[in-house]
Structures are given as C-alpha cells and as structure tokens.
Design a protein around this nucleic acid. Sequence first.
DNA 1: TTCCAGGGGTAGA
DNA 2: TCTACCCATGGA
Length: 305
Amino acid sequence: MALRIPAVPPFDLTAVVKSHGWVQLPPFEWDDDNRELRTVTEIGADDEDRRVVGLRVEQLTDSDGRPVPKVRVVCEGIDEDMLGEAAREEIREQVTWMLGLDQDLAPFYRFARGEPALAHVEAQAQGRILHSPTLFEDTVKTILTTNTAWSGTIRMTRALVEALGDPLPDAPTRRAFPHPEAIAATTDAELRELGLGYRAPYVGTLAREVAAGKRDLKALKQSDLPTDEARRRLLDIKGIGAYAAASLLMLLGHYEDLPIDSWARKMVSERWHAGEPVGEAEVKAAFRQFGRWKGLAYWFWDWSA
DNA sequence: TTCCAGGGGTAGA
DNA sequence: TCTACCCATGGA
C-alpha cells in the first residue's frame, strides 16, 4: 500500500522540484513526462537497522484529473507490505521534509501580493524549496556548490554517490547519498581523488564530526531555534560561510539572510545598477524591504517583471 | 593560456 | 571589522 501524504495548500510538486537545481544532483531524478520525483534514501540509521529505499513521488489528482494537495509515495527495493509502522513514519517524515509539505506560506503570499515581481508565487504555489532527505546531505551538497561551476557541483556529487553511496538492493546502479559514517571512513586524500579539490577536508571533517556525535545537524531543524543561533551553528562548520549558511537557513525556514553568489550580483547589477559590478551591500539593499521574507522574495523573484 | 565559477579560511592590519 | 591572498578543479 503506497503512502499518501497531504500538503498544506496551495501545493504543486513540479514547482517544488523546479525551485532550484537540487533535482539535478544525484540521487535525485525527475521524470518530466510523468511528473515523478525519484530518489534513493536510507531509513533506520538511528537504530542501526539501516536500509536503502528507493522513493517515487507523484502528486495525486481528483476524479477530473485536477491536482490535489497530496502526494503518493511508492517505495522501491523493499517490500512495502513488510514495512513496519516506524519505517513508514520515517519515510513520511523524510518526504514531508523534502517537499516542505507541512509548510504554510500564507504569510509570505499576503506579503507578496504587493510586489509585481512576486505576483506569480501564490498562483503557481511557489515558495517551497526542494530538500534532500537529510540535512547532512544538503550541507555536503551546499559545500560542493562553493567556488565552482554548477557542472562541477554535479560532477562532485555524482562521484561521492557512486563511490560511497549504498546501493538499492534490486538496482545496484542506483545509490543513496553516502551517510556520514561512510564518508567518515574515507580519508581526505581519497575524497580529493573523487575530484572534491580543497573541499575534501571540509566534507571529511563534517562527516567525522557528525558520525562521532560531535555535531548534531538534526537539532538545527527545531522550529523554535532562533535564526541567530542557527546561523552561528552553521558558520561554525568549516567550509560553510555566509553564502552557504544563508542557503541552508532557507532550507531550515529562516529567510532573513540572502545567499549572495555571483548570479545574485549579476542579476542585481543588471536590474538596478545598469550592469555596473555590484557587491554584497547592493544585493542586500535591493531586498532589505522584504524583512523576514527577503530570502524567499529573492529566490522566487521574477527578474523579467 | 587565462579566467572564473551558485566562496571560504586565514593572516595581517 | 576589512582586505589580500590562497585554495583544486574543469569548462569556456
């Protein structure tokens, strides 16, 4: 029996999947024809009963074929009927986190109505950002976005998954993102050989800290954790600076910071500074008026409006 | 060949 | 707090 999980409306699976480039990073796959998101994940890590599971997620429709705010999750590589309630709940939690199904963006939508460049967000159900199943996976992937072209991020992520990810039992070419213990058991030199460059010790150190219980990334997901404290903990990770911390804060539901990268500077330059080079200060100034929503305002800004 | 990408750490001021 | 310099790698 496939899992069915409701979302806070409005919800559109395609909008979440296309919210950024994350879906291009393995183990994510997106079937555009069937509008189906696939990934490979692991459950049972906490009770040392680790199992690799493939997930296929699609949005449900009503009898007239119209999408409804609910997803259907089919598990692969595991007999669904044999899944215990704890395992089903863990899968439910992971998918809810990945797609932000429990996020209520009504306050953002009320705010966006006054801005022409955000006029589309509510009608298109934009505002959710695709997450990986675990914050560890997203933190490593974020480190792999720094100071490299997007093609480099894809290459490095693929190398990590292929070399260190656990395979799906009945489809061994499909692998989960490597868990902290798997990366922790790898030397920095071996990580360099995967093409991670100088990022190798950052990824290796983070994995060893998490595996040893010295760094609790899950604790960052506490909804009542103040932004300042979440930011402080993220910046304490070697390899995470202002840009990467802002990106991860967005995934954690804190939108006060802006992930300012070369693309942000380019867009702000072209839009408000006649193509003259701009720095961090100009990007911040451009979105200051959006207060606690400035991250989402920037992320879903319609630059052609 | 040179430059730079969805930056960050560190030393020195 | 701010700046200069270095960091691996691959594509343009």
